[in-house]
Amino acid sequence: MSTSSIDKASTVEKTIDVDTLRLWLADDAELAVLDIRPSDEVGYASPLFATNIPADRLEAEIDRYVPRAVVRTVLVDGGDGVAQRLAERLAEAGRSEVHVLAGGIPEWTRNGTEDLPTFDVPGKDFSLGIRDERDTPSVSAAELKTLEDQGADVVVIDTRTLPEFTAGHVPGAVGVPGAELLLRFANVVPSPDTHVVVSCAGLPRAIIGAQTLIDSGVPNKVSYLHDGTRAWKEENLELETGATAVYAPVDHAAREAAAQRVETITANDTFPRIDVETAQAWAADPDRTTYLLDVRTPEEFEQGHVPGSITSEGGQLLGVSYRTIAVRGARVVLIDDLTGARAAVVSHWLQRRGFEIALLLHDFESGIAR
């Protein structure tokens, strides 16, 4: 057989059909599914809820998302053949387990999307399940406006990222990304009599944020704003723009309050605690993928972080984990400061989504981990 025939056979072998991908999504082996279409085409999430790395960035960024070259990886394109060419180049670079979904997204959705499996649990579906299970209280935009007009003691906490908050939020809201809620709560809401309304752009982060506060035992009345800023605009109400009110540095009293709430929310949670040496040994394990995710703010990460870790703002992990954790079945180490409030929030919810989680609490001033 000629070399060209061997190459052609190898290419055919690395192409899989829809039925095969369905089987792979249902097994327990490590799997990465990468949607390589342009980001503006993918939007919030593909039908697979897979990690989006556009084709023009894939070769430069794949090592960050899929650290081990031997992980079974499926490239999904728009049915334009781009995946095949990229798979061949990645194979030449030493990635021996890169496969292509024949026909791409058009073939995946050819018979509709109703019963299609997904790579990750869609954030909205997950949050609605939590809401229904816990009966999380809500208020409508009209109800919130009435409360404010009546001068009620109410504060709106927007749990999106600060750039999203800056782009537009309910007037008077305070920007506190979701994973920061327990750590910052005592500074943002000093009175137990204040009605706290948690908001985001729609539902997922607001529901999870509200239920986080409830599960942590805050004494306040807590609700989420149904449909968030979207509902506010649908009531013909104006959004406020700019970083008008965001969380401040955590004082000692707030950190002590956060530590108590961490104990409450984690009362039934059991996660192994590891040190830096163990985390780095796991990350170097040739037989298993491990992500070292620093769930503090990006600014804290820049000031100092554990070698080999990547910044992964905790609130985003809660809603769109597939954007960071591209390998299904990987171990996830959540890195936080010694209070562990951010890691507690993220692990409390991610465990419900099937992730294997360990915690690394690190004293970033002295370099001590526990």
Rank of each mutant, 00 (worst) to 15 (best):
S2C: 03
S4F: 08
L23M: 13
L23F: 09
W24Q: 14
W24D: 10
D28R: 10
D28K: 15
L31C: 09
D40E: 15
G43W: 10
A45C: 05
L48F: 06
F49E: 12
V66A: 10
R72V: 02
L75H: 02
L75M: 04
A83L: 09
A83I: 05
A91I: 08
V98L: 04
I105R: 05
W108A: 04
T109I: 15
N111P: 01
E114P: 00
D115P: 00
L116Q: 01
F119L: 10
D125F: 01
F126G: 10
R134M: 07
P137K: 02
S138L: 12
L147H: 00
E148A: 11
Q150M: 08
D153E: 15
P163H: 08
E164C: 02
F165C: 07
F165H: 05
F165T: 07
V174K: 04
G175D: 03
G175A: 04
G175S: 03
G178Q: 13
L181T: 04
L183N: 14
A186D: 15
S199E: 08
A201S: 13
G202F: 05
L203K: 03
P204C: 07
G209N: 06
Q211D: 14
L213H: 11
I214H: 02
V218R: 08
N220I: 15
K221Q: 15
G228W: 12
G228Q: 14
N236P: 01
L237K: 04
T241S: 15
A243Y: 02
A243M: 05
A248T: 15
P249H: 06
H252Q: 08
A254T: 03
A254K: 03
E256I: 15
A259M: 11
I265D: 03
F271T: 07
P272L: 06
E277N: 12
T278V: 10
A279E: 01
A281H: 12
A284Q: 08
D285W: 07
T290K: 02
D294G: 01
T297Q: 04
E299S: 10
E299R: 03
E299G: 09
E300A: 12
E300L: 10
E302L: 09
G308I: 06
S309D: 02
S312Q: 04
S312T: 07
S321Q: 11
R323S: 07
T324M: 06
A326W: 05
A326Q: 06
V327T: 14
R328G: 11
R331Y: 02
R331G: 09
V333D: 01
L334V: 05
R342H: 14
Q351V: 13
R353P: 13
G354E: 13
A358I: 01
H362L: 02
H362W: 00
F364M: 08
